[in-house]
Nucleic acid binder design. Structure first.
Length: 291
DNA sequence: TATGCGTGGAT
DNA sequence: TATCCAAGCAT
């Protein structure tokens, strides 16, 4: 096997030439704009995030601006991005930044990961992309690139294992600026070339040293990768219920919510779970509104 | 570790 | 049409 350092130069050169000019990259970006983008990009494609990100940054250009607004406004402005708990958590994170960090997005991983809605990936991403710090940034793109290029497998295991993290750590460039570029470059390579389906190996800068290509691109044979169901699930009902309230000016009477789903028990369960999650509040005997 | 959590485009 | 997938997090 070639030394792992052989991967760095071609990937970094490829990124320098092919990186997308996204609003949360480059000189115009702030730590806050990076943070907003990372929340929105959790399980959501870039093309759908772009317009929402612009709207949010125009309306709430700083963490304090968002923190000073109602959390319900964040949920409403989240629109149809999906997983609206992210909006609630981003608002809560903004409150924590205003109250505990002087209104400035924290720079350290340890401070970031304490914020609501910020896990290992997002903390590392903000620390790396916004502050130039040296961290292993292990998202689904990076995991897939390393699984193929180094491990010779089509897909990584369902969850991050110790060996996988150790591999990513061993590949991380020593100096912080290069490590940060390496992180975003491997993510970009996974997003644009080394995709989950139909990877474009002909355009890949490391195809000549890719273990998976060398092995003849064998099909994935690990544990079954489960795809979540949608039709008929509580998630679908929750989505319909919240959409009604989101698109209404004020509180919504229960009888309007009754119309979005015929199964009474499931509808009530979904409604109750939205209240538990804090996405809806019961404001009158039988009315519901955003928080 | 396994599960639940939205939405919509691509194949 | 049904399935897969998209920069995860919290429990």
């Amino acid at each position: 096997m070639r030394g792992v350092s052989d991967l760095h130069s071609p990937v970094l050169a490829w990124y320098d030439e092919h990186a997308r000019a996204l609003p949360w990259r480059g000189n115009g970006a702030t730590a806050w704009s990076v943070m907003v983008s990372e929340f929105m990009l959790q399980q959501t494609p870039v093309v759908r995030v772009l317009p929402m990100h612009a709207q949010w940054l125009e309306r709430w250009p700083t963490p304090t601006a968002l923190a000073d607004d109602d959390s319900g406004e964040a949920v409403r402005a989240w629109g149809r991005l999906g997983y609206p708990r992210r909006a609630l958590r981003l608002h809560a994170a903004a409150v924590a930044i205003r109250d505990q960090h002087g209104g400035q997005v924290p720079e350290s991983y340890d401070d970031l990961v304490e914020l609501p809605g910020v896990g290992d990936y997002t903390a590392a991403a903000i620390a790396s992309f916004a502050h130039g710090r040296r961290h292993v940034v292990l998202d689904t793109n990076v995991r897939r690139v390393l699984a193929r290029a180094v491990s010779g497998e089509e897909f990584p295991p369902p969850s991050v294992r110790k060996a996988e993290r150790e591999l990513a750590t061993s590949l991380l460039p020593e100096d912080a600026p290069t490590a940060a570029t390496w992180a975003v470059a491997t993510m970009e390579l996974g997003a644009l070339v080394c995709t989950a389906t139909n990877p474009d190996c002909d355009r890949c800068p490391i195809t000549d040293r890719c273990a998976w290509v060398a092995a003849g691109r064998p099909a994935y044979d690990g544990p079954a990768r489960k795809v979540q169901s949608w039709a008929g699930t509580d998630r679908q009902v929750r989505g319909r219920l919240l959409a009604v309230v989101r698109e209404s000016a004020g509180a919504v009477p229960r009888r309007r919510l009754d119309q979005v789903w015929t199964d009474d028990a499931q509808r009530e369960r979904a409604l109750a779970s939205l209240v538990v999650d804090g996405l809806l509040v019961r404001v009158e005997p039988d009315h519901f509104a955003l928080p």
